[in-house]
């Protein structure tokens, strides 16, 4: 599904190398988690994959279903099936949540040569998905993320994921700013989307999200590289002992 090879990335504006050779393969149907201390390059990885400005790939590759991601425009990556759930979802005053989602769904369909969704069909689907995530009609009408609480913003991300039905989902610290109940709700939303044809990359600081979204593989990232890969037990180890032991062990 997602194949990253020897990925080197530096900041565009300054001579600072952030990713120093990341190798990672996420298979369809699997949930991979990336954990790591602050500044290890986790969020950079998600931004580079989704095509945010400000980064320069100096070496390596990233492909989605065999297609070169790094060569595509941001919107082309989305249409190809990549989805990033933002750590900090952006507020867009003046653009209604519903208008935004319908524009996005239909733009992706159009890019893929599919027929656009009718208003009636779209309404039906979004109502059902929103209900599962306890998102009320009022929230759908409001401008995108404006005045949403932290939890509402994250639920809105998952709603977008559910509507866009991507092939590869990257969740960037989706647990940040969530209380236990909100986390459960978000995790349930993600779990409902787990599917044989879909891959997940869950980026998180803490093990607690992984109690709810059970990973198949856990990677530890530090200093721009993946330094250790294991099963779910690796997350528990981090929870108990912190990153220090692992960092030492690898060094």
């Amino acid at each position: 599904m997602l194949e990253i090879k020897n990925l080197h990335v530096k900041l565009e504006e300054e001579d600072k190398q952030i990713l120093k050779g990341v190798d990672l393969t996420v298979e369809a149907g699997k949930v991979h988690a990336i954990m790591g201390p602050n500044g290890s390059g986790k969020s950079t990885l998600s931004y580079v994959l989704s095509g945010r400005d400000g980064y320069e790939v100096t070496d390596g590759s990233a492909t989605l279903l065999g297609e070169d991601l790094l060569d595509m425009e941001v919107e082309e990556r989305a249409a190809a099936g990549l989805f990033l759930a933002f750590q900090y979802p952006v507020e867009i005053p003046g653009v209604g949540n519903m208008t935004f989602l319908r524009t996005a769904v239909n733009a992706q369909r159009k890019a893929r040569g599919q027929e656009e969704m009718s208003s009636a069909e779209f309404l039906k689907v979004i109502r059902a998905r929103a209900k599962d995530l306890k998102i009320d009609a009022e929230m759908l009408k409001r401008p995108v993320n404006v005045g949403f609480s932290g939890g509402e913003k994250k639920r809105n991300e998952i709603l977008q994921m559910a509507m866009l039905e991507p092939k590869m989902c990257i969740l960037d610290e989706t647990d940040s700013g969530l209380d236990v109940d909100a986390m459960k709700l978000v995790a349930d939303g993600v779990n409902a989307l787990r599917d044989e044809g879909r891959g997940f990359l869950v980026i998180t600081h803490y093990q607690r999200l992984l109690d709810h979204i059970k990973p198949d593989v856990v990677h530890i990232m530090a200093n721009g590289r993946i330094i250790k890969t294991g099963g779910p037990e690796l997350a528990l180890e981090v929870e108990q002992n912190g990153y220090a032991d692992i960092l030492e062990e690898v060094a």
Partner: peptide, 24 residues
């Protein structure tokens, strides 16, 4: 720019995204 990236990351082409933000 943040709004533009967010819209594009959801598959909205740049031109359409700019127009949406302008209308907003």
């Amino acid at each position: 720019e943040d709004g533009l990236f967010y819209l594009r990351a959801r598959g909205v082409p740049r031109g359409t995204a700019e127009d949406l933000l302008t209308i907003a």
